[in-house]
Design a protein around this nucleic acid. Structure first.
Lengths: 150, 150
DNA sequence: GTATATAGGTGTAAACTGCACATAGATATG
DNA sequence: CATATCTATGTGCAGTTTACACCTATATAC
């Protein structure tokens, strides 16, 4: 048995977050939306192709149901547009393109993700043991002093 | 009217992701769990205090319901322990401490978040217009070539 | 004719979260 | 004493998101 497998078996089976934070847990809700918008900003595309492309953005095994449903919802919201492409062998494709509102929405997502990245940086600074740089020590240690330190 | 306010009104009211990705949207599900575990790793604490501390990790206005419920669930999962602290003026506090399983779980979350950070880096590299460095151009442009470029 | 790859989709249950609301001890104030 | 406030912990419910299973249809290969 490899070490990684052993680690996994020691991991508590937590109901919070399903089982473990790997895979789907450690990414924001609707992460699929900015990923799709970003893909469509460069090239128009369709569901089946977007499924493969999103694999590069943390979706190890994208499930079709969620993707197609998200695309239809995004069209209702006006951030993407679609039209059938039938001039081709094989099943018809619903080709999607991003709208102006979609571009605006993508920019907004980018700003939010930047903010979240900074928050995660704070998390990792604290995780690796360094004190918070923005924390000016306004008596916090004393207030929380009833706990033992490890 | 300020520019920021104007931007906000131009934003499409998207059903995907509630309204907009600001605030709660741009962070993973159960983000509260690693935040609590990290806080408890340094000092034992209780719900009311943890509520204030989590404000520093992207929760602008933490709602008590979610926090207390999460803490109870985490205890059921065995990643934290609690005991009543009554030797004090004021209402009793349920003091929490992290368990060994909780430490393991925190490490696991950290690994997942690191992974996700790398994914977000990929997102931002693509967003700002640079090509993916891991992308060795295996005919991808031609395969996706039916879309127009912007 | 039947298997396979491509392409798009629905139904449902579980999980997560925000919001409103409920409870209760201690202390301060008129 | 009445009651207001701060501290502290919770429950109920409804809305959103998502994973999983399942279904349909077209074209091509064998």
């Amino acid at each position: 048995m490899s070490n990684e497998e052993k680690d996994r078996e020691d991991l508590p089976k937590c109901r919070v977050g399903g089982k473990d934070p790997s895979g789907s847990e450690a990414r924001p809700r609707n992460w699929l939306v900015p990923v799709i918008l970003l893909s469509l900003r460069d090239w128009n595309s369709y569901g089946y192709e977007l499924m493969e492309r999103s694999t590069r953005f943390g979706f190890d095994a994208m499930n079709p149901g969620t993707l197609y449903r998200t695309l239809r919802q995004m069209e209702k919201d006006g951030i993407v547009e679609s039209s059938w492409e039938t001039s081709r062998g094989g099943p018809a494709r619903r080709m999607y393109s991003i709208t102006d509102a979609g571009m605006t929405y993508l920019d907004f997502w980018a700003k939010s993700l930047e903010q979240y990245q900074r928050t995660m940086d704070t998390f990792f600074r604290m995780y690796t043991g360094q004190p918070l740089p923005s924390d000016e020590n306004e008596e916090n240690e004393k207030e929380s002093g009833e706990g033992n330190s490890r």
